[in-house]
Design a protein around this nucleic acid. Structure first.
Lengths: 348, 348
DNA sequence: TTGTAAGCGTTATCAT
DNA sequence: ATGATAACGCTTACAA
């Protein structure tokens, strides 16, 4: 079934049918209703490839997930992000092509780039590359293909980005810990070649410096966002030669969960023996550790906003690159030292 | 840049260029090398939509993830499956369109179905619907679009499926527990509207029945594959009015991990006080609970095999539907009662 | 082995 | 408001 046949059925030309399908106003009510009947009767759906060829738009967006990050599967961050992106694409009648960059295989990466991007499969692409030195991201930033980065990049001003204020939120979280009177505040950091982890680490430093507390590098441990790495880091902190710290700011809820494990192993508990603050606000951990105080970031909303920003960019390519910053929220559930649960949303 | 221009550059017609691009043998070595030079020099990549329109193939496969399953984000199962699918698509130079069915929104579902499937966006689709009564899956099973189901469906023989032998593997796992001398073996089951959970539950029953042990329904607790639900189930089992069971077969590693939590809460440990067996073989849990004995299933391989089966089906649509069954492996790491770690691969 | 030419199903321009 | 008609870039008989 195509426009031509449909036109015959409705007694009009294929041009008129095309106008009806595309919601063009310049069609008589009479012709329109005849065409609409024919469409319903025949179950006609436009042929995507033919549309793309003629209009130069595919109605498909790409989502590129870097290969070189180890926490893709251990942390629900990416799944939730993907969900947000897919939902927003559905709502806008776009398709979503998922690309996962093969780790350590530049040749395969290049093939994907050629086939998908140069082959004009996509109307735009969402980048989630948090790695600082990914070559693909720089290439796409200078490409003509509309692109939006979820996260932040220190040196690509042409890129529209959607992010949370990792640094500011982390600073406020650590200030909160300091407000409880804790002085020796440690930091379990994410991988420091990832922008978000760097920003959170910088926020931690901002808070300490702002309070006139010198940074003790032995209290900062770089991990990889996984629960296991967080547990190991906490073990080291609890066995610190100068005694355990008063509080720990963890760069992710998963690492904080691992931290709770270590605390339990040592026969201790939070916040009595040591205060803990996480980052992410994952419901999953709210179930296992309902008293985890944490910075809640709107992960699916990041995906949805990225789609919105990308569709904007596609519609008006000449507008300057935007910097969207979504709000975070401090959920104080107890492990930081607060007595009352003041987070009704996520409480069990 | 298109075939016509490229032909001018190389001094041949566009047909010849097309043949070179598509690896057709009927091209003289001389012409071929001139065309190849021109392609390299110009950076030509074929236009996907034009190709699709002319050839009726898109080189895009779809992956449909049902909306109504709550454990999509709490369990690394789906991310790992997606990775396997994407990898295999990359290797075959196919793109992968990810569709997540909106939960409880038949109208939105229908729109996706129309646009993507009827719009001929895809060469084939991989279904991961484990829900028994999903209407979309029955519709696709009878559609002309090549489809492969990861999992199993009781009543759609026309579908090619890729699965593990959930029932047989579960039966062997429970037999192993019985072999340790455990008689009261409980079962923490997944959601029983999901085929895999049903099959694992049936395997549990097979083993008990085969050993002449009557099924005690108060020892079977239906959960939802999450860690929290597994913890709650284990709490109930440990507080069972007839005393705690000797062993527990959990339908997923995540639920087993929750079980370990409850066991620790009760001041007990596995396998001394109660034996535990999981299902999945996720490395993630192997880190936190290195002694978890479990049924290892090859999750990314399921995705890769599904892509292989789908490409087969696309290439030869007339071959009868296949039933692929991937092997599982019992990893005996201690929590079942085995003293020695006989799983060198996954040991910490 | 190579070229010619007819599609593929749209969109978009231009008359009417 | 409507209909011809020319793209869009490719594949694929068919002819040479």
């Amino acid at each position: 079934m195509n426009l031509e046949e449909l036109g015959r059925l409705a007694g009009v030309s294929r041009s008129t049918v095309s106008r009806v399908v595309n919601g063009d106003a310049r069609v008589s009510p009479d012709a329109r209703s005849r065409v609409e009947d024919a469409i319903r009767a025949s179950g006609y759906v436009p042929h995507a490839a033919a549309r793309s060829l003629a209009s130069n738009r595919t109605r498909i967006l790409g989502l590129l997930i870097p290969g070189a990050v180890g926490f893709i599967f251990s942390d629900p961050y990416f799944p939730k992000l993907v969900q947000g992106v897919v939902d927003a694409c559905n709502a806008a009648d776009y398709g979503m092509m998922l690309m996962m960059e093969p780790a350590d295989d530049p040749v395969a990466s290049e093939r994907i780039y050629q086939r998908v991007f140069r082959g004009r499969h996509l109307d735009g692409v969402i980048l989630t590359t948090s790695l600082l030195d990914d070559p693909l991201i720089e290439r796409l930033a200078t490409d003509t293909l509309p692109a939006v980065l979820i996260g932040r990049h220190p040196s690509l001003p042409s890129l529209t980005t959607v992010d949370v204020d990792n640094r500011g939120a982390s600073c406020r979280a650590v200030q909160h810990l300091l407000g409880h009177g804790h002085r020796r505040v440690a930091h379990v950091a994410g991988p420091l070649d990832i922008m978000a982890a760097i920003d959170r680490s910088d926020g931690y430093r901002d808070a300490l410096t702002g309070a006139g507390i010198p940074i003790d590098d032995s209290l900062v441990i770089e991990c990889d966002f996984t629960e296991a790495s967080g547990r190991d880091a906490m073990r080291r902190l609890l066995a610190h030669p100068d005694g355990r710290p008063d509080a720990v700011f963890c760069g992710s809820d998963s690492m904080a969960a691992g931290g709770f494990r270590a605390i339990a192993e040592f026969g201790l508990s939070a916040p009595c023996d040591i205060a803990v603050m996480g980052f992410d606000g994952l419901e999953q951990h709210a179930v296992s550790f309902p008293h985890l105080s944490t910075v809640v970031q709107p992960i699916p909303e990041l995906g949805r906003s990225a789609v919105g920003a990308l569709l904007n960019r596609i519609a008006s390519p000449d507008e300057p690159a935007a910097r969207l910053m979504l709000p975070t929220r401090l959920a104080l559930r107890g492990s930081c030292g607060c007595l009352n649960d003041d987070d009704p949303d996520l409480a069990p």
